Computed example of a mutant assay.
Amino acid sequence: MKKYIILLVIFAYAMQLFAQEETEKVKDTPVSNPFESGILIDAQTTVIPDAKTLEFLIQHKFGTMDNGRSDLWGLYAPGANVRLALNYTPVKNFQVGIGQTKKNMYTDLNAKWTIFHQTEKNKVPVSVALYGVVAVDGRNVDQFGTGKVVDTQGEALPTYIDLNDRLSYFSQIIIGRKFCDWFSLQAGASFTHYNMVTMDSNHDVVGIHVNGRVKFSPQGSFIFNYDHPLEIESITEQSPWDTKAKPNLAFGVEIFTFTHAFQIYVGTADGIIPQDAMMNNQNDWKNKGLALGFTITRLWMF
């Protein structure tokens, strides 16, 4: 009888330890709302809406503010850009999307996968996501200038543009952490490639990215974003590269609800899709290159 009692005690103790371990596992859930939206200004966050969620996205940038009051700080200036997009989450932690942008008549297909989520007990200290975009330049052939460029020092071929020439690509790894209830920060690295470029441009660009938010109320945050294209000698085709893209600096305010996010900001890049900003931005925040912009998202859960 004593043997049975001892076995029961051991079994009960083991079950208690197992239950405690399982409880701890259950409690170590992903942190809530490191960001309120999957997009921050025109950068991606590690956040993906719940499965079966459709997102409508409006991104708009006005002209630069360098003329001041004469064009109402860029609201009436030429060079405005807009993008309309739809994103859908077919399964948990994976999102696909399609968008249409005014500049260069880009049509883009994109996907994002959040591999890891930061957890409340820090067993997973950061969130990690992968993001990729392929875009098609939809302009007429006569707007491509000299045509194909096969070599930096070579001659441009006759103006014949096929689908492959119109393609560009962007890939990024994003690492983010929610440090406390009011502060979240992300960093990332990216690779951009254009199949066809002009004689004074590179085909490839590597970039680094930093962005974040500081909450000042339950539904409001200060937000910021910085993208920096790197000039890496081993992949640079130009020496010197006088037309390389300028860094993109943006900062603003976000107001959000359960299904909406509204962000208004000032920033330098006139491009909206990431490969355009990383390859072609010539606006300099040090030289009156800032422009007003806003981003609006709307979610529908099915």
Rank of each mutant, 00 (worst) to 15 (best):
K52G: 05
P34M: 14
I41L: 04
T64D: 08
F62N: 06
D66Y: 13
W73P: 00
F62V: 07
P78V: 08
F56K: 04
Y76T: 15
N81F: 00
V31F: 06
G74H: 08
E36L: 09
S32Q: 15
N33H: 12
L57S: 02
P30L: 15
N81Q: 07
K52W: 10
E36Q: 15
I48H: 04
D66K: 14
D66N: 15
L40V: 04
L72H: 13
K61N: 03
D42M: 03
V82P: 03
T46I: 08
T53H: 07
G68Y: 12
V82C: 07
L40C: 03
F62D: 04
A77I: 05
V31I: 15
T46G: 00
F56N: 02
G74P: 05
T29H: 12
V82R: 08
T45M: 01
A80S: 15
D28S: 10
K52H: 07
T64Q: 11
F35D: 00
L57K: 03
I58C: 07
D28L: 10
L57A: 01
G74N: 05
G79W: 11
L40E: 01
T64A: 12
P49M: 05
D66F: 12
W73S: 02
K52M: 08
K52I: 06
D28A: 11
K52R: 09
P78L: 03
F35G: 00
L75Y: 14
E55W: 01
T64V: 12
I39N: 03
